[in-house]
């Protein structure tokens, strides 16, 4: 792994949105080069390339963040990304009932390698909250508004906004803990 890969890896693990966005931009460009070669060379379109890039970058980020992908001096990040691009494109081709080229299929790895159910589970739990809860929590966590600004936006008191936020979080926590309890 190069020093550039090492820096990229550290930034991908970061909780700082700016650092993360910078790393994602760099990763997107690198994955794009790989995906263009593989998808356009195997009966795909530019739109397919965009889809594969989006899915792959997200998957790499998930794997890095969850610790499934560990920095190894002998494995470049590009090689890892190539494996994910190949698997995702193979799955798309199979869904479309396209005959998969032999050399593409031979290098296929296990689906477990690229699958991470954690994020979809979280998204599903969030979706189970009402629209009002989702809006308030997204304003706070996604957009970075303060509770004071949120209270103004929702035209309620700051106290009411806080109560609403914590109740929404408690509900979300309950859903997730029940889900995890079932999974365990």
């Amino acid at each position: 792994m190069t020093s550039q890969d090492q820096k990229l890896y550290e930034d991908l693990c970061s909780d700082d949105p700016r650092r993360l966005a910078g790393a994602i931009r760099l990763l997107t460009r690198r994955v794009n080069v790989i995906a263009r070669r593989m998808v356009l060379g195997n009966s795909g379109t530019r739109s397919d390339v965009d889809d594969v890039v989006q899915d792959t970058v997200l998957a790499v980020w998930q794997q890095v963040r969850s610790g499934s992908y560990q920095v190894r001096p002998d494995v470049a990040l590009d090689a890892y990304a190539t494996t994910i691009v190949r698997n995702k494109w193979l799955r798309t081709l199979q869904r479309r009932s396209v005959v998969v080229p032999g050399d593409l299929d031979e290098n296929r790895t296990s689906d477990a390698f690229t699958e991470d159910r954690r994020l979809p589970d979280l998204e599903e739990a969030l979706a189970r909250l009402g629209q009002a809860c989702q809006r308030l929590l997204k304003l706070f966590y996604w957009e970075g508004y303060s509770m004071e600004e949120i209270a103004r936006l929702l035209e309620i008191t700051m106290e009411a906004a806080k109560v609403r936020k914590y109740r929404c979080m408690l509900r979300l926590g309950e859903i997730l803990r029940k889900k995890n309890g079932r999974a365990e």
Binding site: P17, L122, E123, L137, C168, M169, L172, G173
Partner: peptide
């Protein structure tokens, strides 16, 4: 535990 679980999930989702 519920608040902490929700906070962690929301932080991950906001990064996503």
């Amino acid at each position: 535990l519920r608040l902490q679980t929700a906070d962690e999930a929301l932080r991950i989702l906001s990064l996503e």
